[in-house]
C-alpha cells in the first residue's frame, strides 16, 4: 500500500469523509430518480391532475374567504397549491420508504449499512437524498403553477426552501419508520390506504379548517391532530414569506420523533430489524 493511499484510508472517517459519504448517497438517489422517468412524470401528474381538474371543479363550489397568510380573496387553485406541494413530499417520502423496502429486498440496504460511518448518519443521508429529489419535483410543479395564476411573491420561492427541507425530512422519516416495519413490497398499497389518504384528506390541504369546523367538529379536531396539517400550513405561510411558528414547532417536533424512531428501528441491537432477522432476513 502506498503512503498516499494509507493517508487516504486514515482520512476515511474525517469530516470531509462524512461529506463525501452523504454526497454519494444523494448522488445515487438522484441518478436513480432521473433514470426512472415514469416516476418523475407520475410525481408531477398527480398534483397537476388535482390542480387542473379537481381544483377547477371545486372553484365554484368552495369560496375561500380572506384568511392568513392571504391578504385578498384567493382562487381555490391558489389555496390548494401549498397542499399539493405537501402532497408531492408526502408521496415522495412514502416512495422513499418503498425504495427502502426495495433496497432491503434487493440487498442494497446491506451495502449501505456496512459503510463504516455511524448508522444514524447513513439513515439521515438517505433521508436528505429523498428530500433533494422532492425539491426537484416541487420546483417543477411550482414553475407550472405559476402559469396557472398561482403567483406567490418571488421571495416566497426562496423562503419556502427551508420549510420544504424540514417538511421533507419529517415525511421521509415517517416513511423510513414505516419501512422498517414493512416486510414486503406489496404492503405499499396498505400504506396508501392507511397513511397517505387519511393524512392528506384529514388536513388543511384541500379545505380551510374553519370550513371543516362548520360541517364536522370531530373531523376538525382530527385535522388539528394531524401533523400533515402543520406541514401544509408551514409551506403555505413560507410561500408567502411568513413564518407560522406553531406549524414550525409541530413539524420540527414530529421530525425529531419520526427520525428518532427510524434510527431506533434500524439500530442493530435494539430495533425491529434485530428482532425480525435483519434486512432481507427471512
Amino acid at each position: 500500500m502506498t503512503q498516499a493511499s494509507e493517508q487516504e484510508e486514515a482520512k476515511g472517517l474525517s469530516f470531509s469523509g462524512y461529506l463525501h459519504c452523504m454526497r454519494g448517497i444523494v448522488w445515487r438517489e438522484a441518478l436513480r430518480f432521473l433514470q426512472q422517468r415514469e416516476r418523475f412524470i407520475a410525481a408531477l401528474v398527480r398534483p397537476l391532475v388535482w390542480l387542473f381538474i379537481f381544483a377547477a371543479g371545486f372553484r365554484s363550489v368552495l369560496g375561500v374567504s380572506i384568511i392568513p397568510p392571504y391578504e385578498t380573496y384567493v382562487l381555490y387553485e391558489v389555496y390548494v397549491t401549498p397542499g399539493l406541494v405537501a402532497m408531492i413530499q408526502l408521496f415522495n417520502g412514502m416512495q422513499s420508504s418503498l425504495s427502502m423496502v426495495y433496497d432491503r429486498e434487493m440487498g442494497n440496504m446491506r451495502t449501505l449499512l456496512v459503510s463504516p460511518f455511524p448508522r444514524w448518519f447513513l439513515l439521515t443521508s438517505k433521508l436528505m437524498a429523498g428530500v433533494a429529489v422532492s425539491l426537484l419535483q416541487v420546483a417543477v410543479f411550482l414553475a407550472i403553477t405559476w402559469f396557472w395564476e398561482v403567483e406567490p411573491p418571488l421571495w416566497g420561492y426562496l423562503a419556502v426552501i427551508p420549510a420544504l427541507i424540514l417538511s421533507g425530512l419529517m415525511l421521509g422519516a415517517l416513511g423510513m419508520l414505516l419501512s422498517s416495519g414493512i416486510k414486503q413490497l406489496e404492503n405499499f398499497a396498505g400504506i396508501m390506504n392507511f397513511v397517505i389518504f387519511p393524512m392528506f384528506f384529514a388536513s388543511s390541504a384541500l379545505y380551510p379548517l374553519w370550513r371543516m369546523k362548520e360541517t364536522s367538529p370531530l373531523l376538525y379536531e382530527i385535522c388539528l391532530l394531524n401533523p400533515f396539517t402543520y406541514v401544509v400550513e408551514l409551506i403555505r405561510y413560507a410561500l408567502y414569506g411568513q413564518l407560522n411558528l406553531e406549524a414550525l414547532a409541530v413539524v420540527a417536533g414530529f421530525t425529531i420523533l419520526f427520525l428518532g424512531g427510524a434510527i431506533f428501528a434500524y439500530n442493530p441491537s435494539k430495533g425491529l430489524i434485530a428482532r425480525r432477522g435483519g434486512p432481507g432476513g427471512k
Binding site: L13, S14, L31, Q35, R110, T111, S115
Partner: peptide, 24 residues
C-alpha cells in the same frame, strides 16, 4: 444476494460504494 444496482453503470456502482467509505 446480488447487491449491485442494476440500473446504474458498473462504474457508478463502484463510485457509490467508494463514497460510502468517504473517498473523494
Amino acid at each position: 444476494q446480488r447487491t449491485l444496482d442494476l440500473d446504474l453503470t458498473v462504474m457508478q456502482n463502484l463510485l457509490y460504494h467508494a463514497a460510502l467509505h468517504g473517498f473523494t
